[in-house]
Design a protein around this nucleic acid. Structure first.
Lengths: 192, 192
DNA sequence: GTGATAAATAGACTGCGGTCTACTAAATGG
DNA sequence: CCATTTAGTAGACCGCAGTCTATTTATCAC
């Protein structure tokens, strides 16, 4: 148990933050990021405006935390399983990511958009969300290379950038994120 | 000369649109998209608010037109030149794009962000800006393949998505767009 | 208990993009 | 000349995200 350093002043009420995240998550799922106002989140959670901005700098910060707190558990990372070729596993992973994105409507798109106007949020979003997912793929590809399933000449880090880049590019241009894309990406990464 | 179909009512004053584009271009170059308000553009151009929204649906529409009207002439498309390998030409092209983006600060980032909240603008931006540039690369890669400089097994269309995707991904995550990236992209596209 | 500190609440306020209304001005066809 | 139609101007107006101020409340140290 960590020694709590007993900060002075009134302690934060956990319920306030939880209520805000719960309200934000529910409303964004129901209506989409664009169509949810901060005022609505405050009304549903029954919390005062300042209490939100005491915890998060922007609406995007709150929604990112509410939305992706468990997102890491929704998509199973790529891993080696007996009898499963690396290429097929990458394809499976991509399809799960696409499904998750489809279920979450345009939330990722909105958060990426928010990051373009806010360097601080851009870094936070990258460090806490984008980078870890990129590294999962890098590690997986490096292992595939070690096992001889990926040609030796390729750079796993660069391949991961291409893979995520292709998927961002399609997402941000409003184009379909379907199994055909997953197949094409996996084929390009592993193909000759 | 096209038969002008003599629309009824007062004709549009060309100067109004030109003044708006000139003001928008100058202010965005000076201060960046985020830091320019519509009110400023109106003040500098000496035009009324409604006149702007008669011509463009949003600030993003105006800035896109003002900013990229001549952008097509700034970057020389990839083309085959005697003694110039396709891979080197692609690298040159990417470096010119990166330079142009650096000079235009975050304008492309802001327009991509605006597109995420506005499906109509997303389509317009894609059709009039993104797609043509993508096709330039596809055509170039297809020609390289025909000439035997690009391995036969690869799909030029998919490669173009990877190339643009990688560059969008880096751009939108606030990472450097430097010659090293251009080299890595060209190497991955043409390398074994 | 007293004072200090910080959380929570309520609500006014700012600047923004975009819409709306009212009015004037320039072209058309009759 | 007159009716119609559209462009342009001026400025009020709306909902938004985020800031600020004032007040109350909960917890410390003493």
């Amino acid at each position: 148990m960590p020694m709590e350093t007993a900060a002075p002043g009134r302690p934060r009420d956990q319920k306030v933050g939880l209520a805000l995240k719960a309200a934000a998550l529910r409303l964004v799922r129901e209506k989409g990021y664009q169509n949810v106002s901060v005022a609505e989140i405050l009304k549903l959670s029954g919390v005062a405006r300042q209490s939100l901005y005491n915890r998060w700098k922007t609406k995007a910060d709150l929604v990112m935390e509410a939305f992706f707190e468990d997102a890491g558990t929704r998509v199973r990372p790529p891993e080696f399983r007996p009898g499963q070729p690396a290429r097929a596993e990458l394809e499976r992973f991509l399809n799960e990511v696409f499904d998750h994105l489809a279920a979450s409507d345009g939330t990722l798109r909105s958060l990426i958009a928010a990051a373009q106007a806010d360097p601080e949020f851009c870094r936070l979003f990258h460090d806490s969300f984008v980078q870890p997912r990129e590294e999962m793929v890098v590690d997986f590809l490096a292992e595939a290379q070690r096992r001889g399933e990926l040609p030796a000449g390729r750079d796993p880090a660069m391949l991961a950038v291409f893979i995520h880049g292709a998927f961002w590019y399609r997402l941000l241009n409003g184009q379909p994120m379907d199994p055909a894309l997953a197949r094409a990406i996996a084929a390009a990464a592993f193909g000759d």
